[in-house]
């Protein structure tokens, strides 16, 4: 869908094993069309996602980072995503302060049965990152972050 029409960007997705990874799988099994920019990393729980993993992804050149877990109250480990929600919200408000545009990092909840919702999330997030463009273009004054 995307690869042919526009240059692919590097988007990293941290998906929890129990809901969102299953949701992405459901979307795949149902043969829903999705952009291919997102690289999925499967984690045990959204509570496993250290905010530094997100920061590190940006520093290594990711153009966007998405974290997705079980809906609050539906966490496989009962409360992992409640902790994640607080941490990720702080991170989301903090990253723009350092110069990473708002919108490059998002977190959301997708359950294993929500294949259609996963398709919507990944499509919208990918489009959002494409609107922002690559994180640092060579020669835009700022230079490469590395």
């Amino acid at each position: 869908m995307s690869g042919m029409e526009r240059k692919e960007l590097r988007i990293v997705g941290f998906l929890c094993n129990w809901c969102s990874y299953g949701g992405a799988d459901t979307a795949g099994v149902s043969r829903f069309k999705q952009p291919t920019d997102l690289r999925i990393i499967r984690v045990p729980c959204s509570g496993r996602v250290d905010p530094l993993l997100v920061v590190k992804a940006f520093m290594e050149g990711a153009d966007g980072v998405l974290v997705s877990g079980c809906h609050p109250r539906d966490c496989h480990y009962a409360e992992g995503n409640f902790y994640a929600r607080r941490r990720l919200e702080v991170l989301k408000r903090f990253l723009p302060f350092m110069g990473i545009e708002p919108g490059r990092f998002e977190y959301t909840w997708v359950s294993a049965s929500e294949g259609a919702r996963w398709q919507k999330v990944v499509t919208e997030f990918t489009n959002q990152i494409h609107r922002l463009g690559p994180i640092r273009r060579k020669g835009d004054g700022g230079g490469d972050i590395r």
Binding site: Y83, R85, R86, R87, E89, E106, T108, W109, F125
Partner: peptide
């Protein structure tokens, strides 16, 4: 300290609905 705990409903956090 706030990151050592949580609330089931977070009044201040507006989660994005896609």
């Amino acid at each position: 300290p706030p990151l050592y705990t949580f609330q089931v409903e977070e009044p201040a956090i507006k989660e994005r609905e896609w």
